[in-house]
Simulated assay, not measured.
Amino acid sequence: MAQLTLITGGQRSGKSSYAQKYATQLSSQPIYLATSRIWDEEHRKRIERHKADRDERWVNIEEEKFISTHNFKGKVVLIDCITLWLTNFFFDNKSDIDLSLSQAQKEFDALLKQDAHFIIVTNEIGLGGMPENEIQRKFTDLQGWMNQYIAQKANEVILMVSGIDVKIK
């Protein structure tokens, strides 16, 4: 049965650093499952900076959408991050929230059938003000609903605030 830790918070709140430290405390060879597409040059540099943060202990896997297709039995897996993973569904489905949420939930449920410890990083993008355009509002809703879905299934939920971890569940 899967063990699930959700780490959430705002941008630059310390989520990834906390998650990496936690994963290396649980395993001498954790898996880092990166879900991002490279959208532009600045984003590529962010990804490279994240890669540089990890040492030789890490097994790195890149998977944009189909995270359940990998065998993680008995492993500690850090998935970074749900926000970028959802972005892939959202854009592939032409901003269709219902279809994106359904597909993401189905894929997530398939992942949790594996006996592994999953450490999931996500963003609380809805903590800020109301987005000024429809696409951003739709994605914020999608992100919020998926975060709730994952948090309900999680054994543990940590909120990162200014580099400080706050246990929620």
Rank of each mutant, 00 (worst) to 15 (best):
M1K: 08
A2K: 10
Q3R: 10
Q3N: 12
L4G: 14
L4D: 14
L6G: 05
L6N: 09
G9I: 11
G10Q: 05
Q11F: 04
Q11M: 06
R12Q: 10
R12K: 06
G14L: 08
G14C: 14
S16I: 03
A19H: 00
Y22Q: 13
Y22C: 11
Q25W: 07
L26S: 09
L26H: 02
L26A: 08
Y32W: 01
L33T: 12
R37T: 13
I38M: 07
W39M: 09
D40A: 05
R44Y: 07
K45P: 04
R46Q: 13
R46T: 15
E48N: 08
H50R: 09
K51M: 11
D53W: 03
R54L: 07
E56H: 04
E56F: 04
N60P: 06
N60R: 08
E62F: 06
K65V: 07
K65G: 05
S68A: 05
S68H: 01
T69R: 08
T69G: 02
N71I: 12
F72K: 04
F72I: 05
G74W: 02
K75R: 15
V76D: 01
I79Y: 07
I79L: 14
D80M: 10
D80C: 09
C81K: 00
I82L: 15
T83C: 14
L84M: 15
L84N: 14
W85G: 11
L86V: 09
T87K: 03
T87C: 06
N88T: 14
N88E: 10
N88Y: 12
F90I: 01
F90W: 00
D92S: 03
N93C: 05
N93I: 10
N93Q: 03
S95C: 08
S95N: 08
D96Y: 13
I97E: 15
D98Y: 04
L101W: 05
L101Q: 15
S102L: 08
Q105A: 13
K106M: 12
E107Q: 14
F108K: 07
A110R: 10
L111H: 01
L112V: 05
K113S: 11
Q114C: 06
A116W: 00
H117F: 04
F118Y: 13
I119V: 15
I119L: 11
V121H: 00
T122Y: 14
N123D: 01
I125F: 12
G126I: 07
G126F: 06
G126S: 10
G128L: 02
G128N: 03
G129T: 15
G129Q: 14
M130S: 15
P131E: 02
N133T: 10
E134M: 11
E134K: 09
E134L: 08
R137W: 14
R137T: 05
F139N: 12
F139S: 13
Q143V: 05
G144Y: 03
W145M: 15
M146V: 13
N147M: 05
N147F: 03
N147S: 04
I150W: 04
A151S: 12
A154Q: 03
A154C: 08
N155Y: 08
N155K: 12
E156T: 15
I158W: 11
I158M: 09
I158A: 06
I158S: 03
M160I: 07
M160Q: 11
V161Q: 12
V161M: 15
S162A: 10
G163W: 00
V166P: 02
K169C: 04
